[in-house]
Computed example of a mutant assay.
Amino acid sequence: MALAAAAAVAIENARLFERTRSGERWHRAAAEVSEALLAHSPIGEVIALIATSAREIAGADLAVVALPNPDGTLDVEVAEGEKAAGHPSPGYRIPVESVIGRAFSSRKNEFDFDWSLEGGPVFSAVAALPLVTIDRVIGVLALAWSSPGDSREGLQVAESFAKQATVSLVLAEAQQEQERLAVFQDRDRIARDLHDLVIQRLFATGMLLQSTSRGQNLSPEVEERLSRAVDELDETIREIRQTIFALHEPLTGPSTGVRGRLLNEVSLSGAAMGLQPGMRFVGPVDASVDDALADHLVAALREALVNVAKHAKAKKVDVIVMVKETNIVLSVTDDGVGINPDGFSAHSGLANLSARAQDLGGTFALERVSAEGGTRLVWQVPNSNT
């Protein structure tokens, strides 16, 4: 009897010791997440830290954090653990009928056995813990164990940590929105200063130069220089106005406006080319181009810039999108080696551009800028909104 009692006391002490250790891990993990929030770490890093901490304190082999999309579906944001082996991969769409999907829809903890996801390893047990606020579910934390016995020991502390993780994610979202608001306010200030101060001063300077050239006995060379200076000022004003438009584009995510889509295409192509093309809009592009024509316009711009990247060896590229009375005109000019005198092959991207323009009832032209080189591409199609 005495031996049995001593064994029971030893077992209970071991359990108390393990609970104490689990509590210490819980507090340490919560402190690390709080430190990340105070350091204004990106929300992605905070989510990754939550997954790692939850897996460690629960003794799990895999931790998955899934976040909802605007349409109500769930995507994997992060999967952490030595046995993850790339499964599930970030961005993987969670099946609605899975244990994670059920936890999201029911707002309750859900459990399953012999579980796997996206063709990954099979785990003996999994617990899906919804991260619930008063008005919504902001995500699901799933923990998987290879041994069912390990899940029983770690589940209780994991549930407590999930509640702490919910608070942390809410704070991280609020912090991110405050930072986004600060950036937008700063952008608005810059755009306002550019419009109210810089453009007005440049315009006044141009007027002063034009008045100086009138009624003065200036040599033709000086008049030509003054005229060029005024033209450069006008071009600078147009570029500043384009910058003002760009400052009002969204910080992240796809832009629904035509301008935003074209600017995004230029940015992506610029990264591939190793230089940033200049971009200018003439006329009310967003109001004049419908969605169907916008798709063609973006595709044409992409094809034109790919051609420049492959063949032109250019150091400067300028893109102009112009709205005329009845047409939309895309012009891409580079200072590269110039077009091939033999023209372009029937299977090239330029041939695709020509065919696309003809299908829309438009025209496609390619010309050499000068004897030294350079190419100007003009893609023109009827405006369906006129």
Rank of each mutant, 00 (worst) to 15 (best):
S22I: 01
A36T: 06
V78H: 03
L62D: 06
H40C: 05
G59I: 04
L49Y: 09
I43Q: 09
A60H: 05
A30N: 07
P42V: 08
P95T: 12
A60M: 06
E24K: 14
R21K: 15
Y92T: 09
G72Q: 14
G59E: 04
R55Y: 01
Y92L: 01
A54W: 01
V76C: 05
A66C: 07
L62I: 05
H87N: 11
A63M: 06
P68G: 14
G72C: 15
A79D: 01
L49Q: 14
P88Q: 09
S89I: 02
V78E: 07
I94Y: 00
V65C: 00
A39Y: 03
P95L: 12
S98V: 03
A39S: 14
I50H: 02
H87M: 00
A39D: 14
G86Q: 05
T73D: 13
G72P: 15
I50P: 06
G91R: 06
R19Y: 05
S98H: 05
G81L: 00
E32N: 14
E97P: 00
E82L: 11
V76T: 04
I50R: 03
G86H: 06
I94P: 05
I57A: 08
T52Y: 04
A36P: 04
H87R: 14
A63Q: 04
G23H: 09
A48T: 10
A66F: 00
E56G: 01
R21C: 09
L38M: 12
V78I: 12
W26A: 12
A36Q: 07
E35P: 03
A51M: 10
A54V: 04
P88R: 08
T20F: 09
L37V: 00
A30P: 01
P70G: 11
V33Y: 10
H27S: 13
L62N: 08
E45W: 07
G91H: 03
A48S: 14
E35I: 10
I57S: 06
E56W: 04
A36W: 03
D61G: 00
A79I: 00
G91I: 05
G23E: 07
V46W: 04
G91N: 07
D75S: 07
T52M: 08
D75W: 01
L74M: 13
A85F: 11
L67G: 02
A31Y: 09
E18Y: 05
E35N: 11
I47G: 01
S22P: 03
S53Q: 14
K83Y: 06
P95K: 13
H87V: 02
P70E: 15
S53D: 15
I57W: 08
R28S: 15
I47N: 03
R93G: 02
E82Y: 04
P88V: 07
A36K: 12
A36H: 07
A58E: 02
A66D: 01
V76D: 02
G72F: 13
D71Y: 13
D71L: 11
E97K: 09
Y92E: 05
R55G: 07
H40M: 08
V78P: 02
Y92F: 13
E35V: 11
A58Y: 04
A39K: 10
I50W: 06
E82R: 11
N69Q: 15
G86C: 05
R21W: 08
R25Q: 14
A63K: 05
